[in-house]
Write a protein that binds this DNA or RNA. Structure first.
Lengths: 224, 224
DNA sequence: ATCCTGCTTCCTGTATACAAGAACCTTGAC
DNA sequence: GTCAAGGTTCTTGTATACAGGAAGCAGGAT
């Protein structure tokens, strides 16, 4: 309850940016936000610093805070790094995973399967997220886990688009099964390779993503 | 000249922490620093936020800012990630590097060789740094380049210790030659593998690093 | 003697005040 | 009518004021 105001604001603003309440390019007005949250500008500014650190806003000196609009190529670059980190997590996890973590991973996989068979896209989305976070934390490298988790969060809004692609969920699920198989049977190279391509969404999947992004961008432009 | 005070403070404090002026575990007193820099607490606190974001200080609520003392296992974890990122940079660079970047890399390699043959450790250190930064920027992925550069900077104080190990410079140089060879002759897998192990300093080199860290830690304790 | 408790003091977190720079509007000139 | 220059207003960056929690110390109880 004694949580700092600035921390609460950071979480709230992050949420608002990721969900699109504030669109890319928008300027975040300190005074307006201070009024809206009924606090002074000080914690608002502090929250801005955090958001800038995680790359969500651009802090232009004497100009203010602007919601960042990563270019498509930037997003692709981030996915490329995400693929490498995920692959690394999988490789390490297949060597270092504990018994209880294996059980959790299987549980998460089953949750994915259940959501898929029921056709519940949102449920699948969260089960999928849990699955990946489990792989991160199973890698046995706290720093890597933190980095992977942060980047995953950063890519959240774009990752969502992937699932809208026809047949993506079913293919994603099949890959999850292969990943678990490789990890629990200690085939690190294979776990790494599958996770990498799982993220990279090569071929047509990738183009679908780009197309989705363009559509999203236009949508933003209309509302903005 | 119209640089923000907070930015200047951040750079200064970062310098002071990395060079050991403030030792790990030290508490950074807002009021003292404000007096020392002849500014108010506001920009000091802003600088703290930045330092916390880059992992240099720990911001404990209602307690203050403390210089982080990464545990040895944390440092090892960071090196493990660094190795992966460097390997990725090399792999991508071997496919994407431009002609002018190749020339620059060869130049940097020659600078390393010159420094090594003259036995100038400090010169080698900087030539080595330039070499690695060139690989990062040659990877063609701006996000990756930024992440690798940031982590490299973060590991700077520990990386320095590696070079003190007997014979490390000569071996490092040989690896550099092999890296350039693999990159310019477009053997991405090889470039990745060599760079990875180049960072990981396997075997005895690794133990030497840990020993050096322990010595450094004790040194800090004595001065503090 | 040691530990607990309450007080005091100090420091952080937040609010507010102030100064300087940027944007915008108006007005005048071409 | 358009463009530029100057001033006005608004916003950010920094300083200061204030409030609440944390650490340290003293005094009493066991």
């Amino acid at each position: 309850m004694s949580e700092r105001i600035a921390d609460r604001l950071r979480d709230q603003l992050e949420q608002d940016i990721l969900t699109g309440t504030y669109a890319p390019g928008d300027r975040l007005d300190e005074v307006n936000l201070a009024r809206r949250f009924e606090v002074s500008r000080t914690p608002i500014r502090e929250a801005f610093q955090h958001l800038a650190a995680s790359g969500l806003v651009d802090l232009k000196p004497r100009r203010g805070a602007f919601v960042r609009r990563p270019s498509i190529s930037e997003i692709i670059e981030m996915f490329e790094v995400m693929a490498e980190l995920e692959g690394m997590c999988g490789r390490l996890a297949s060597r270092r995973m504990t018994v209880s973590q294996t059980a959790e991973l299987n549980e998460a996989l089953e949750a994915c399967e259940a959501a898929c068979s029921r056709g519940e896209l949102d449920t699948y989305y969260y089960a999928n997220e849990r699955f990946h976070f489990l792989v991160y934390s199973a890698c046995g490298n706290g720093y890597l886990c933190a980095q992977a988790t942060a980047l995953h969060r950063r890519l959240k809004p774009y990752r969502r688009l992937q699932l809208r692609v026809r047949g993506r969920v079913r293919r994603s699920l099949a890959e999850h099964r292969a990943i678990v198989d490789a990890i629990v049977n200690e085939r690190p190279q294979e776990a790494e390779a599958i996770l990498k391509s799982h993220i990279l969404i090569q071929g047509e999947g990738f183009n679908d993503l780009v197309a989705g992004l363009e559509r999203e961008k236009n949508g933003f432009a209309e509302t903005g």
